[in-house]
Design a protein around this nucleic acid. Structure first.
Lengths: 229, 229
DNA sequence: TGCGTTTGTCACGAATTTGTCACATCTTCG
DNA sequence: CGAAGATGTGACAAATTCGTGACAAACGCA
């Protein structure tokens, strides 16, 4: 799982700390103090993953992420953003911009490592006809059946699609707007809070087999299906 | 086991030979000299199976196969590739064309017939004449009889075909549109809700032996024959 | 041709799903 | 603590989907 990671962080202390941890974990680390410097590095080396501080002097992290997403060569490089605590508006904005995950400072090396591992492991899973299974909860798109530890579970059409999407994209936070796009369809006129209601209905349906705790609420960001415990 | 087969082969001699054999076996044969002609034919008639020469003038067989696989209406039509030599067979296998089987020229009528039967059995079981049985409900395509736990059941022609298709594809949800294509046939102009009516008539007929609960309604998706309890 | 059967459509009501709101609860932070 | 913001929850009406009975056209057969 050794990867080349680009770290963009202006605070020297944090940069050193993170670099040390990542190097210990066997990754090759490239450091940049600013967005501009990151762009220069990226011209020569294509990283496997980008750790990006959202607050940077000069060009902000958001703008840099936008540039990355617009570039064909960098489009598919996962981005994890580093945010200050409670910076909730930025969380949503970041996810919308195309960040794959976020992590709030201060964070433990353990947490950072886990996130990186998760993001790297998840390439671009599609919603296929394949059966999906997460911690005893299984969903079969072909027969349209959902079972928790073998027990059949009843859920409505929307809840089914929602669960299918989340199970094929685990360990990733999706904002309400993103879920509306992916599950309801693009350009639909629906209140964002409607997602909450369907998440609740989904949890209610999964409660039968205690699988409702698979769905995490990520305050300020959205929802996530966690395959871990 | 009479099927409509599209044969795409540019060598006139082989085309005649194969056509003769297939016709003898009771199949209806459509012939095309080129991929382009095949596309024209397919616009009007949906074949049950395609026999496709690998090497064709103009668009190659592989390209044609890819086109078929990309088309929603043709996606599920089985394809058997005809190759000249064994090593070509390997090449074709290497390219992911989505062909269901391969047969190397020259081949005996016996071998061709066997391959066709095998592919149809796998991809379109309702074309075969095998007796089907699900949870005490049995259907015999040959004698055209249906019995529930031994008791003879009466159903109309359409209900019979519908039940046959569903029993040969259990644990799979089909939308009304898919059922119309598969049971009524391609290019038919029938209201989707008509399927509901026939499902009801089928359920009514199966009610005699309590087998009506085999057919599940999957709200927002379609219908499913459940082999489970 | 006449009669019984099959088939496709429709209209209506029942059942379910869906989106929204109001209010409760919880978290964060001054 | 208390305000502000975010999420959970129960209720509800509109919308959608499905089941069902009726009916006329099409069909098959003697």
């Amino acid at each position: 799982m050794a990867a080349t990671i680009l770290l963009v962080e202006d605070e020297a202390g944090i940069q050193e700390l993170v670099k040390f941890n990542l190097t210990q974990a066997g990754h090759a680390v490239l450091c940049a103090d600013s967005a501009e410097q990151a762009l220069a590095i990226v011209r020569d080396v294509l990283p496997d993953l980008v750790l990006l501080d959202w607050m940077l002097p000069g060009m902000s992290g958001i703008e840099l992420a936008r540039l990355f997403r617009a570039d064909a060569r960098l489009k598919s490089v996962p981005i994890i953003m580093l945010t200050a605590r409670g910076d909730e508006r930025d969380k949503v904005l970041g996810l919308e911009t195309g960040a794959d995950d976020y992590i709030t400072k201060p964070f433990s090396p353990r947490e950072l490592s886990a996130r990186i591992k998760a993001v790297l492991r998840r390439r671009a899973p599609q919603m296929t006809e394949d059966k999906v299974e997460v911690r005893g909860l299984s969903l079969d798109p072909v027969s349209h059946r959902v079972t928790g530890n073998g027990t059949p579970l009843e859920l409505g059409p929307t809840e089914f699609r929602l669960l299918h999407f989340m199970m094929t994209h685990p360990e990733r936070v999706y904002s309400r707007a993103q879920l509306l796009d992916q599950v309801w369809g693009d350009h639909v006129f629906v209140e964002e809070r409607t997602v909450d209601v369907h998440i609740r209905r989904l949890r209610l349906a999964l409660e039968v087999t205690q699988h409702d705790n698979l769905i995490d609420t990520v305050r300020g960001a959205g929802y996530r299906l966690s395959s871990q415990i």
